[in-house]
Design a protein around this nucleic acid. Structure first.
Lengths: 105, 105
DNA sequence: GCGCAATACATCATATCACGAAGTATTCCG
DNA sequence: CGGAATACTTCGTGATATGATGTATTGCGC
């Protein structure tokens, strides 16, 4: 998929991946893979950005002798998801402009 | 609108603005304004990028004593628009992942 | 028990890109 | 005469996705 098109989706996608309950980096990537592929370095960059923006909180816990970071969505994160739904309406008007009439289909 | 979300739309939007016939920078901006606002510096950057990618051709002509650059979409540009329609299907699966069930609506 | 894949996270350098700011130059209207 | 509109250009900056690379552990096959 076009890199540029992904950009706006990446952040909300990560938020969406934890909207139903805590998760951790490695699992998020695997969960999102069928929908949107991203490299590990990208994911951890995004997780840090979202944490800085107060959209998720982090908790480090041991699992099988290894440390894992569990990410949990905050109210602010949910607000962001709600905003995204609003923005999507604008996106759809743009989409209709691009694929507008005068073309087959 | 979120800057990131715009990014993937900008290029195809400009192509869409000339898909029914030649146009020029200033007019493209005004035409797109209701759907997607962009600064002049952004537009001219994009026009140059699309020209470099062979998706449009440029022709300079005089109009009322002033020089204007007219942009015309190429076959390659039309292919890009067709690709966008395909990519959009993937985008919609991502969208559904983000706003998936477990939420009202 | 050795090697390798999978798990899990981190850092750095790089390239792309949208945009504000500023500039140049002309036309048109009051 | 002055300012808005038209029309395009250049420069610097900040944001950001990603590949490369590194660290460290667990589990599996042979």
């Amino acid at each position: 998929m076009d890199i540029q098109l992904k950009r706006g989706l990446l952040d909300v996608c990560v938020l969406a991946a934890i909207q139903d309950g805590e998760s951790y980096g490695y699992r998020i990537i695997k969960e999102m893979k069928p929908y949107l592929e991203m490299s590990e370095s990208t994911l951890y960059t995004i997780l840090k950005r979202l944490e800085g923006a107060g959209m998720l909180t982090v908790r480090t816990a041991e699992h099988d002798g290894r440390l894992r970071k569990y990410y949990k969505i905050t109210d602010r994160g949910r607000v962001r998801l709600a905003e995204f739904r609003e923005e999507w309406k604008e996106i759809m008007t743009v989409y209709r402009f691009v694929v507008r009439e005068g073309n087959k289909q």
